[in-house]
C-alpha cells in the first residue's frame, strides 16, 4: 500500500474463496459457542423459571406449600401434561395436601401496554386472595403503584367473586371505582392518580374469572385430589 494505485486492485487480489472460507469458519465457531452456552444454561434457566412461577403462586395463595399444574381449556380442566389448547392454571395445596387456592394468569390493557398479573382464587370462599403483577410498563411513580401500594393490594385479600344462581358467570362483575368510593366486596378501590392502571387490574381479573370460575367450580373435585406428593397419610 505504498501508492494509491494499488488500492483498487485489492479487491481482485483476495479470491472470493478466501472470503467465504473466513466467514464460514467464523460462523461455524460462533454456532459452536452459542450451542455450548445454550446447552449449559438451559437447565439453569428452566430452574429459574420454575422458581419464579412457584414464588408467584405461593405469594398469591397465602399458606400454600406445593402446587400442581393444570390446563384450563374451553371445556374444563385437563392435567398439566396433556396437549390441549388453554391457559395453564396452578392448583396450590397446604401442608396437609388440601386444596386452598388456584393461581391464574390474567392480562388487560393498561395506560401504556398490557398489564400481566397472576391472582389467587379461593374456591371455598369464592373470592380472590392475592395478586402479583408479572409484567407492566405503567408510569413510574403513578401507575406502577398497582404492584406494591399496600392500600390497593388490600382490595385483593378477599375480593368477592361469587357465582350467580345459574353458575355460569359471576354474580357481580368485579370492577374498579374511583378512589374512596368502594362500597361492595366486589369493587376495587382505585389508586388516586392511577385510575387507568387500577381499572386494568380489575378488568383483567373480571374477564378471567367470568370464564374460569364456573369451569373451576364444576371441576373442583378433580383438583382436590392432588397429583403432587404429600397426601393425607
Amino acid at each position: 500500500m505504498s501508492d494509491a494505485a494499488s488500492t483498487p486492485n485489492l479487491a481482485n487480489n483476495t479470491p472470493a474463496f478466501r472470503m467465504v472460507r473466513t466467514l464460514g469458519a467464523i460462523a461455524m465457531l460462533s454456532g459452536l459457542l452459542v450451542v455450548l452456552v445454550f446447552q449449559y444454561t438451559k437447565p439453569i434457566i428452566a430452574e429459574n423459571q420454575r422458581v419464579a412461577i412457584e414464588q408467584a403462586v405461593f405469594q398469591v395463595v397465602p399458606g400454600a406449600s406445593s402446587r400442581s399444574d393444570w390446563i384450563l381449556g374451553a371445556d374444563g380442566l385437563a392435567s398439566g401434561g396433556s396437549h390441549i389448547a388453554g391457559q395453564t392454571v396452578y392448583a396450590a395445596y397446604d401442608e396437609r395436601g388440601a386444596l386452598i387456592g388456584i393461581a391464574l394468569a390474567a392480562g388487560a390493557q393498561g395506560y401504556q401496554d398490557v398489564v400481566k398479573l397472576l391472582y389467587g382464587y379461593d374456591p371455598d370462599c369464592q373470592c380472590v386472595r392475592g395478586i402479583k403483577i408479572l409484567k407492566m410498563t405503567e408510569t413510574p411513580g403513578l401507575g406502577d403503584k398497582i404492584a406494591f401500594d399496600p392500600a390497593f393490594l388490600a382490595n385483593f385479600e378477599a375480593l368477592d367473586a361469587r357465582l350467580n344462581a345459574a353458575g355460569d358467570a359471576l354474580a357481580n362483575p368485579i370492577h374498579a371505582v374511583k378512589h374512596g368510593k368502594k362500597q361492595d366486596a366486589w369493587q376495587v378501590d382505585a389508586i388516586s392518580g392511577a385510575t387507568i392502571s387500577s381499572v386494568a387490574v380489575a378488568n383483567a381479573i373480571n374477564r378471567s374469572l367470568q370464564h374460569a370460575a364456573p369451569l373451576l367450580q364444576r371441576d373442583l373435585t378433580r383438583l382436590k385430589a392432588p397429583t403432587t406428593t404429600g397426601g393425607d397419610d
Binding site: A11, T14, M19, S30, I45, N48
Partner: peptide, 27 residues
C-alpha cells in the same frame, strides 16, 4: 480476515458474544 468481509466478520463475532451474555444473564 480479508478486508472486504471484515465488518461482516466483526458483526458475527459480536452477535455470538451477545447471545452468550443473553443466556448468561437469564441463568
Amino acid at each position: 480476515i480479508p478486508k472486504q468481509v471484515r465488518i461482516a466478520s466483526y458483526i458475527v463475532i459480536i452477535a455470538t458474544f451477545v447471545t452468550v451474555v443473553d443466556y448468561a444473564i437469564q441463568a
